[in-house]
Nucleic acid binder design. Structure first.
Lengths: 215, 215
DNA sequence: CGGTTAACCGGAACCAGGTTCCGTTTCGCT
DNA sequence: AGCGAAACGGAACCTGGTTCCGGTTAACCG
């Protein structure tokens, strides 16, 4: 008797409401692209040519609105995981980590927000299942330490995506060097050559960009 | 003829002003301990038994106030760096990274804010100098790959401190395992045993804590 | 000491942005 | 056409950072 959530209306929307919902989503995507998470609900309403009240009936909070905008990204990450299962070789895991990170780097959303969004949990579980398979394969093929567990890979992805976020504007490829380093380890031994480091002249800008100030 | 900044008054403060400055700093430290970066200036003023206007004359913005509170942490990190120079062995670098991370874990400030604070730049340079020495020694002693550069260590510290921040409440030691992993690498080979992973029952909470929602 | 004044004080007012409220309008149905 | 539920819009509200300004006071001078 009452519509519960924006992501799963329990009854048909009235024609005008449906039209406005589309407009709101379109406007939100637009504003989000421009401002990232700093987008203002007022601005979204303006783009959608709608009152703020209308936005808020559909999305009770700014956070819900963000969830809706972000929703497709979960699905796309899952698809990367599934694609990396296709070849049964041992490097699917590494391929997945690289692809997923590159994909993440391409859009501007902090991974904490991406995976904290409502509805992310179920997708996360599916990705986890895929990763367990990838991990097993990598161990079988001898490309991964036996004592590494799923958790470690998750933590690794957290650190790498945080790095991506901090350096997107100033050194958008630095995460690749760091990932290579983590895969091989910092100790001397049988290693592959690393990608180039950031040129010294650029480094100060990289540092400045990562260090933020409040508000 | 005009006092420029709170961190370096160019003339003596009037007695009442000096007293209030102390109170404000004390209050700010207190409130910051309780609320982290969400502390409100109004609350600081209340603790200091002072009007907001008084706080704002001393610290033109909330950010400046935070800088003042955070200032001692820079110095302490530098001291860790200097202490790790004392022994001329090859493991000073690793010791420094571990100590500095542990120190960082002990207080609640995101490292981006810590190092973005005004006045951090000079300390950073001193720490960098120390790290260059530590890196050289580690390479000479054969405990560090030859192709690793200063930048890599900085990036490593960024990722590890971000991890610390994300897991402080739920898995405050997980960064140690991850650091061990990064030092040795994820590939099979001559490795040392890792610290335990997070127990499965706890893991969901760790994940939930890291994934934040907007506002 | 009283007078003078620049420095200082407090808190009301302002502003921005998220959220709520409610009188008005519109859709969908009979 | 008439009716009620659903939807609309935007003014009003709230929180928290920041600014403003009339009143107060420390410090110094005659």
């Amino acid at each position: 008797m009452r519509v519960e959530r924006a992501d799963g209306p329990s009854h048909e929307l009235r024609q005008d409401a449906a039209r406005n919902l589309e407009r709101i989503l379109a406007g939100a995507r637009q504003v989000f692209d421009e401002c990232g998470t700093d987008f203002s609900v007022e601005e979204v309403a303006k783009r959608a040519e709608v009152g703020v009240g209308t936005v808020y009936r559909r999305f009770p909070t700014k956070c819900d609105l963000l969830d809706a905008v972000v929703f497709p990204l979960h699905q796309q990450t899952l698809e990367i995981a599934q694609r990396s299962l296709e070849s049964p070789s041992g490097d699917g895991l590494e391929w997945f980590v690289r692809q997923a990170t590159a994909f993440h780097a391409a859009h501007g959303l902090p991974s904490r927000l991406l995976w904290g969004a409502a509805g992310a949990a179920t997708v996360r579980k599916e990705i986890a299942a895929a990763m367990e398979v990838l991990i097993k394969r990598a161990k079988d093929f001898g490309t991964l330490r036996e004592d590494v567990v799923y958790q470690d890979l998750v933590v690794l992805s957290w650190t790498i995506t945080d790095l991506v976020e901090a350096t997107r504007r100033t050194a958008p490829r630095i995460w690749e060097r760091h990932l290579d380093l983590v895969l091989d380890g910092l100790r001397p031994g049988p290693i592959r050559p690393l990608p180039a480091a950031v040129p010294a002249v650029k480094w100060d800008r990289v540092v400045a960009e990562r260090h933020e100030r409040i508000r």
